[in-house]
């Protein structure tokens, strides 16, 4: 069998360069497998070789999307691969967006790409049509089960073997409809499904109806100089010592903190509980995430009527969509009851 070349894309952490303090690094190229690549090596078909690994910091990629994409594209081209594997990214948002973008770059070059993500990773929704995304657990603890599926899929793509449906192959639906020959005609299949449904048996739809949950934009605030405005953040700013013990990732709750009489969030009184970004800058000047100082100035100038005397904070790092919805819905109920009209929500 002809040799097939595979290139791996990893973030700074899995690329073994460093943690959040290295999330700012620009793309680097290595001509060998690194990190998960060592595990993949033994799982890929024998004719597939990982010829290189491209490593980029998660923050760099997302903050410099165009430059990062261009550089990574050039690096991929230099390796001339048959398949690109990105990640797996599990439920890491920035990493998932980077892996998705890499998949898009590869697909534009005519190279198939495979990644692995938790279904709630924003990278799935944004990039699923460009690459095959194997469903993984929400943390790197599922690396062991993710790699064999990724390797199997990458191997098939490298050797141009036909792929089955998302359910058969273990990847998340790409929203692509394919013509296939069925044994029974449509009316028979529909009746079978209906009978199964009426008898309370399990059945599988052939075309899941896409679910778009969109909220229409709220009207503009008529006069902010008369309005009460509240601050909410997913950036994890909390009073020093994190009194509510908000988790550094996968937060199970949020906090509400009084800023009555507080002119500025200072380093001696506030810090971040977020474990998904380098905390140095937020700890130095917490206003960089929750801009109380600027809003006090604008309140003084009469640009807003009043800053709501509490801010709300949680950690948006790997936090489940269900929890985020619940937190925000509770916060919003409270704000509406308190007569707040406008919200600034900051995210890191």
């Amino acid at each position: 069998m002809e040799t097939r070349r595979i290139v791996l894309y990893l973030n700074q952490f899995f690329g073994q360069i460093g943690g959040e303090d290295q999330a700012h690094i620009a793309p680097q190229s290595f001509d060998k497998p690194i990190g998960p690549g060592l595990g993949l090596k033994g799982l890929l078909p024998k004719n597939c070789t990982i010829v290189g690994t491209i490593v980029c910091g998660d923050s760099y990629f997302n903050e410099n999307l165009e430059e990062a994409s261009a550089t990574v594209g050039e690096m991929i081209k230099d390796f001339d691969p048959h398949v690109v594997i990105a990640g797996p990214a599990f439920n890491a948002g920035r990493y998932g967006m980077a892996c998705g973008t890499v998949g898009k770059i590869a697909s534009e070059m005519g190279i198939p790409a495979v990644s692995g993500m938790y279904p709630e990773n924003p990278g799935v929704e944004s990039y699923r049509q460009y690459l095959y995304i194997v469903e993984t657990g929400n943390s790197a603890a599922s690396m062991r089960t993710a790699l064999p599926s990724i390797a199997r899929l990458a191997g098939k793509l490298a050797n141009q073997e036909p792929l089955g449906s998302p359910a058969e192959e273990g990847y998340l639906s790409r929203g692509i409809r394919k013509n296939v020959f069925a044994e029974k005609r449509g009316s028979d299949r529909a009746i079978d499904m209906l009978l199964a449904k009426l008898q309370g048996e399990e059945f599988e739809t052939e075309y899941p109806i896409p679910h778009f949950d969109r909220v229409d934009p709220a009207p503009a605030v008529a006069d902010l100089s008369q309005a009460t405005l509240a601050l909410v953040t997913s950036g994890g700013i909390v009073p020093k010592g994190n009194p509510d013990r908000i988790e550094a990732s996968s937060a199970s709750h949020y906090g509400r903190y009084s800023i009555a009489g507080v002119e500025s969030l200072t380093a001696d009184a506030y810090e971040t509980a977020h474990g998904g970004y380098d905390p140095v800058y937020a700890n130095q000047v917490p206003n960089r995430v929750v801009p109380v100082d600027a809003l006090r100035a604008l309140e003084q100038e009469g640009k807003i009527g009043k800053l709501f005397p509490y801010f709300y904070s949680t950690v948006g790092n790997g936090t489940s969509v269900a929890n985020a919805k619940k937190f925000a819905s509770e916060i919003a109920h409270e704000l509406v009851n308190e007569g707040v009209q406008a919200v600034i929500l900051t995210s890191t």
């Binding site: 709220a218 009207p219 503009a220 909410v232 925000a328 919003a332 919200v343």
Partner: peptide, 10 residues
């Protein structure tokens, strides 16, 4: 989205 769903401008 959940905040906006409650009618708050965000």
């Amino acid at each position: 989205k959940e905040i906006e769903r409650m009618g708050l401008t965000v």
